[in-house]
Simulated assay, not measured.
Amino acid sequence: MLKLHVTDETSHLKEVILGIAKDNGPVPALEDAYDPKSIEHIKAGTYPKESDMIKEMEAFNAVFEKYNVKVHRPEILKDCNQIFSRDIAFVIDDYFFKSNILPDREKELDAIQYIIDQMDPSKVIRPPGEVHIEGGDIMLWGEHIFIGTYKGADYPDYITARTNMQGVNYIKEMFPGKIVKEFDLQKSNTIAKDNALHLDCCFQPVGKDKAIIHKEGFRDLKDYSYLVNIFGKENLFHIDKDEMYHMNSNIFSIAPDVVVSEKNFTRLNQWLRSNGITVEEIPYAEIAKQEGLLRCSTMPLIRQ
């Protein structure tokens, strides 16, 4: 039996689901792309090749092996992008939530069913249909649950709006003992530099008391100030639009003092090291072209 346990973003990782890039399928048609960054690369003819993405994911897997993390992989579906396991489910405390994902991604959940079968069935939850939440919008920090959302009346017009207020309220009801705080994020279907696809595209805690943040990713300055008050300005690493676009806030913590990061994130990686954090640098720039990076590719099951 898998005893799920995740209460924050940085505690020692024991077990994780890592997505897979094999049999990723052809370059998507423009109308089938899920985000503006993918659209940009489809148009430019620079959409990532499967062979490159497989290499990047295997480099990630090798870091997990080095730190004795048990890695689960999805079963391979033909012609299906299964890289971003964070979208399809998430763990809070010892509960496993299945996301109500974009309908054509439903089969990605079937590919991890063999892992779900190892969990206590009473801890596996499918929220009601009107509740939309994706794992990239859920950030755990002790008694806090931070949730990315979009509060605009035009929510249905945005394929990039992934977690709705019904989702926020659902988590508030499920965890009455926690401080559930939602953040209204900037969304754009067409301009990648103006789009925070998920909360982890503009914010993520690292270490024991620090975080990476993109101030302009928040529609309401009060939301940004809320995080400044929790972490302290001196503990925040501010990233600009270009760094946000290249997914600097989407690195991944294996422990409070060990982070996996993209090798081109020079400024960020120096800051992490200057704060006593070991940085395992890997190439992940091809996968980043799909507006997702290291955190998006992982779904932690057990942190100690």
Rank of each mutant, 00 (worst) to 15 (best):
F231D: 07
I287Y: 00
I239Y: 10
K43L: 13
L197H: 00
D184A: 05
V279K: 06
G135R: 02
F237N: 08
A288C: 12
V124S: 02
L13Q: 10
C80R: 13
K208A: 06
F237M: 06
M139F: 07
E130S: 11
N235K: 07
K263E: 15
K37D: 00
D242M: 11
K22S: 11
E65W: 01
H144C: 02
P36L: 03
M165N: 08
D223L: 02
D94Y: 06
M53I: 06
A33Q: 08
G177H: 14
H41V: 03
K233Y: 09
I133G: 06
L236A: 02
P48K: 11
D52Y: 11
Q204L: 12
I83P: 00
L221S: 12
K222I: 00
S261E: 01
V27F: 07
K208Q: 11
K22N: 12
Y226I: 05
D242V: 09
I116L: 14
H72S: 03
P176I: 04
L272I: 09
Y95R: 13
F218G: 01
I251H: 15
D154I: 05
G217Q: 03
V259W: 06
K151R: 15
H198S: 01
R105L: 13
V71G: 10
E31Q: 09
I17M: 02
K98I: 14
D94W: 04
E280C: 15
H5A: 10
F252V: 07
S38L: 07
V260A: 10
E15S: 12
S274Y: 05
V180H: 02
D157L: 14
H246V: 12
F60Y: 14
Y155E: 06
E281Y: 06
D117I: 01
L199K: 04
H5G: 07
A196W: 00
P300V: 00
F60G: 03
V16E: 08
E106R: 13
K14P: 04
L221I: 12
S11G: 08
I213D: 09
D194F: 08
T266L: 15
Y150K: 04
